[in-house]
Design a protein around this nucleic acid. Sequence first.
DNA 1: CGATGAGTTGACGTCGATCAACTAATGTGG
DNA 2: CCACATTAGTTGATCGACGTCAACTCATCG
Lengths: 284, 284
Amino acid sequence: MQSTHLSDLRPATAQPTGAEAGRQRQGRLWSNLREVCDLLHIPTTNIPSSDELLFQHVQFKMGQRVHTIGQAFDTLFVVNSGFLKTVLIDEFGNEQVLSFPMKGDMMGVDGIHTRHYASEAVALSDCDLILLPFRKLAALGRAHTELENLLYGVMSRELVREQTMIGMLGALSAEARVARFLVSLADRFAAMGYSSKLFNLRMTRHEIGSYLGLTLETVSRTLSAFNEVGLISVDQRTIGIKDADALKNLRRLPPSRSRSRQRARAEATAAAASVGPAVQLATA
Amino acid sequence: MQSTHLSDLRPATAQPTGAEAGRQRQGRLWSNLREVCDLLHIPTTNIPSSDELLFQHVQFKMGQRVHTIGQAFDTLFVVNSGFLKTVLIDEFGNEQVLSFPMKGDMMGVDGIHTRHYASEAVALSDCDLILLPFRKLAALGRAHTELENLLYGVMSRELVREQTMIGMLGALSAEARVARFLVSLADRFAAMGYSSKLFNLRMTRHEIGSYLGLTLETVSRTLSAFNEVGLISVDQRTIGIKDADALKNLRRLPPSRSRSRQRARAEATAAAASVGPAVQLATA
DNA sequence: CGATGAGTTGACGTCGATCAACTAATGTGG
DNA sequence: CCACATTAGTTGATCGACGTCAACTCATCG
């Protein structure tokens, strides 16, 4: 696995992958405050689109690390394009996935407290990130109330997200967790302007399982089961959402016996009634 | 169940329960900025102990609600004394415990984002809380960098705490969760100047279970098992920590048969010889 | 084309939930 | 202050959801 630290990276010089926002200057991509706020979905009542104050973009390739645990903190990141995961590494080297940041999400907030990042961020695809030097940002917040609200708001939003996650891990069945995970992905894709009905997973079953507190086999089986009952369609990493409402409210599926009994019954009806089993199995 | 909202409460007029900090003025308890920072364990390099700027205390009786979900947000709370729980209520009215705030903890941060509290806070004992009007506090932060750092720092700390919680719920066995819960309580009591070896739980088994993603029966059984192997002593809500290190590193206990075999052997022969370890510790 | 990792599916075991019975605290009204 | 109701906690028996182990298929890529 390749790994790259900030200091190793030369900022993008060529065409960026996602060229929605930003401008070239000194052969690099930059965004102004207004664009950053828009990206974060923060109402920007009166932030001017001035180009006085610009924030630099940096590109990461799939598999590269944006920051690692314990690394000195000084900047926050906003995802402009691409997909990532953030993970905790436990005392035995096991990864615990904490989130799957994508366009409009902020990363690095967990570094503020101790001045060192508490988690690790890895690119799951090629990514374009905007760097927000924290000290500079906080200083700016003193002048612009909107920006100050942005910071507090984003941190609070992240906190609420994690609370919801805790509630989910503490109370829901495997099936309900996977269902809500799919719905939440669909919603986020919708918010980014993509289809919420058909999308590609950017993460492995193992990463999904880690995120949801399940094994990869359980994730796989659950997706298959959803597919079987027509809630979704699954083809490798391509997911089609068939019944979003049912997924949202799902507590658990009827037991698999009853599903297979239904199938068995359907098959059996053709082959008439009372034929004994061909082979008598040992039952003790 | 009694419930009280902020507006219903008359601030304390008599002797407060925990009279560590604060002063009387207009027959009420108040703390200055310095005292609040100390309470939060924030290094206060150059915050003066001026009494220009005072924050009001409010008392809550056991069972009272400090804030409820959806209630308009405008103030943060710092616990000066007492014990509380914060909970999420899911779509079917089930409580999910998120945290057990105690002296020095901040509550209400989850309300910043949407301007409405996202959780509910309930007093588990009589409590003395300090009110921090958020807008006022943020405004003050613009003048005092230390205070600004306090706010960002406390929010980030809370975020890291929840991340750790997610990792725990996602990866650890029931026994490991209960063990770490006890250790974390012990540490917090130590930080408050109380004994970390002997303390009283302020919450029910049901609340612990909800917090840890377990049923109350599992919590009860696990405590009994820890007691049985001598890791702790349990008498109702009184917990004695016997082997904090073992608790910290515990992955899971050996199956109960082998435990009772061990007891039987120990009782049968005073000759110890080669008895396997009573607890399975973390190994690389 | 073989190698490698991702994903699927089955068989089986077990951890923890559920249901239930009981005891120990706590509180309330007479 | 006691009788009684109510809630908290313990413990046992049972069951099922999910983890584990294993075999296999399918994509991707050098």
